[in-house]
């Protein structure tokens, strides 16, 4: 059983649950459908947010394509399918997976992994022990993890900044773009098979992880 709510133009969805997971599906529709039925749904005072809260159950939210979403959970995971607008999401032990966002993305988790297939704007990803996979980021990308690895595909237009402690770093650069690569490490190694230039900056730091820059 689901409940349906009107989403004012330009408003974003803000969904939080303590121990459940959050699944958001962007699809051809005009309203927002939430399952299971919950009484903790309402527009914020300024009308800019549709706020959805749950203590322990998982949430499935269906919304119009291009909706801006912010979501938070402790132990569950967060998954966003379809084309969203801007996305801000945080988890503690769960992972975060985003299909496509045409705006900026900010995702963070303490121990979960982070995965974004496509981000049209700037992308920030931060986790302590999970892996980070950002398949395509159109603008600036920043990724930080302690023990996890980072795999990042850049659009080659804006700066890329990556920090790891022990995890490896792989950055894929589109054909015809020539980055200036700076890699600082205590014991890692750099392998770069991409011709360097001044098109954009790739700056990476790692204590012991190695870095690979690949031309696509």
């Amino acid at each position: 059983m689901s409940t349906r709510h009107r989403l004012p133009e330009g408003a974003r969805i803000k969904a939080v649950t303590a121990s459940g997971s959050i699944l958001v599906i962007a699809e051809e529709r005009e309203d927002v459908a939430i399952e299971p039925e919950t009484r903790h749904v309402g527009l914020s005072e300024d009308g800019h947010r549709l706020e959805i809260k749950s203590k322990s159950s998982s949430l499935e939210i269906r919304c119009p394509i291009g909706t801006n979403v912010s979501a938070g959970t402790i132990s569950g995971s967060i998954e966003l399918r379809g084309l969203l607008g801007t996305v801000k999401a945080s988890a503690v032990s769960g992972g975060i997976k985003i299909d496509r966002a045409n705006g900026d993305v900010d995702i963070r988790s303490v121990s979960g992994s982070l995965r974004v297939e496509s981000c049209g704007g700037e992308c920030n990803a931060n986790t302590k022990s999970g892996n980070i996979g950002l398949a395509h980021v159109g603008k600036a990308a920043r990724a930080a993890t302690i023990s996890g690895s980072v795999q990042l595909g850049t659009g080659g237009q804006s700066e890329v900044l990556v920090k790891t402690i022990s995890g490896s770093i792989t950055v894929r650069v589109p054909e015809g773009r020539y980055p200036h690569v700076r890699f600082r490490t205590l014991s890692g190694r750099l392998h770069c098979d991409c011709p360097q230039g001044t098109d954009f900056e790739i700056s990476a730091h790692s204590l012991s992880g190695s870095m690979e820059v690949k031309a696509e």
Binding site: K14, V16, A18, A71, G72, T73, K88, S90, D106, R108
Partner: peptide, 8 residues
Amino acid sequence: EVGPTVMK
């Protein structure tokens, strides 16, 4: 804003 956060 970086989004809503639920903490242990």
